[in-house]
């Protein structure tokens, strides 16, 4: 469902020209978006509700000088199955698309991601990026990721990067020494992990709303009390010298 009522489209910010934000918080079908010349759009899929999701987001860049951002925040738990396909299809040149998807997988959650960047022959001077990071927090969770590129033009810059892994023991140890237990530490690390994506959302109202939902979900998953986050962050701040 596209959250039209609350997404407060066409937010004008100081540094950016008209940026349109499209929030998808329940991905269960195929979406196709055409982006025309000069448009600046950010798509956010925000999937943390514990349902099974299966869907596709196709972004067709039809005009020059467009800017597209696709952001994804995914939390999977229990026996949740999440299947996402994205396409950044550059049909016209001189445009930029940037995808950044992060997932955190608990319990038996299975996440399968297939992302395609396609640069057509006529789309010279395109820039396209794709980044997918997955944290697997349970021995039984799975991530299956296929970041694909099909480049038919030569004056382009395309990169993709993927990481899959657990929270590093060093990080946990550090926070332990600061007096946090394992769950508190993991909660803080995950907050920071997703913050990187939230920061890319220019619309502050929406960003704050998503942030609140995300934090409540994380606190719940780690069995922590709501409102604990501020205390935790304060506790690891270096103490000021006298």
């Amino acid at each position: 469902m596209i959250d039209n009522d609350t997404s407060e489209c066409n937010q004008k910010t100081m540094e950016e020209k008209l940026e349109e934000l499209i929030l998808i918080d329940n991905l269960k079908k195929k979406y196709e978006f055409n982006i025309n010349s000069g448009e600046n759009k950010t798509f956010v899929f925000f999937l943390i509700n514990g349902e099974n999701y299966e869907g596709e987001i196709k972004v067709l860049i039809q005009g020059k000088n467009t800017k597209v951002q696709i952001l994804g925040i995914i939390i999977g738990y229990k026996n949740q199955q999440i299947k996402i396909i994205t396409l950044q299809d550059h049909l016209a040149g001189e445009s930029t698309s940037d995808l950044y998807v992060k997932s955190a997988l608990f319990d038996n959650a299975k996440f399968s991601y297939e992302g395609m960047i396609r640069i057509e022959k006529n789309a010279q001077k395109s820039d396209a990026y794709q980044k997918n990071q997955n944290l697997i927090l349970s021995q039984k969770a799975n991530a299956n990721t296929k970041p694909h590129l099909e480049i038919l033009a030569n004056e382009v810059r395309c990169t993709h990067a993927v990481t899959v892994g657990d929270i590093s023991d060093d990080l946990l140890y550090y926070l332990n020494t600061r007096g946090l237990n394992k769950l508190q530490a993991k909660y803080l690390i995950l907050s920071g992990y997703f913050e990187e994506i939230l920061q890319r959302i220019k619309d502050i109202k929406i960003r704050n709303r998503l942030k609140k939902n995300l934090h409540n979900k994380l606190l719940k998953l780690f069995g922590l009390k709501i409102g604990e986050s501020i205390r935790l962050i304060a506790s690891i701040r270096p103490k000021q010298k006298d």
Binding site: L149, V162, G165, D166
Partner: peptide, 11 residues
């Protein structure tokens, strides 16, 4: 979960 996987590509 106990693994470290990295992939990067540029064209």
């Amino acid at each position: 979960s106990k693994t470290q996987v990295e992939h990067e590509a540029t064209v």
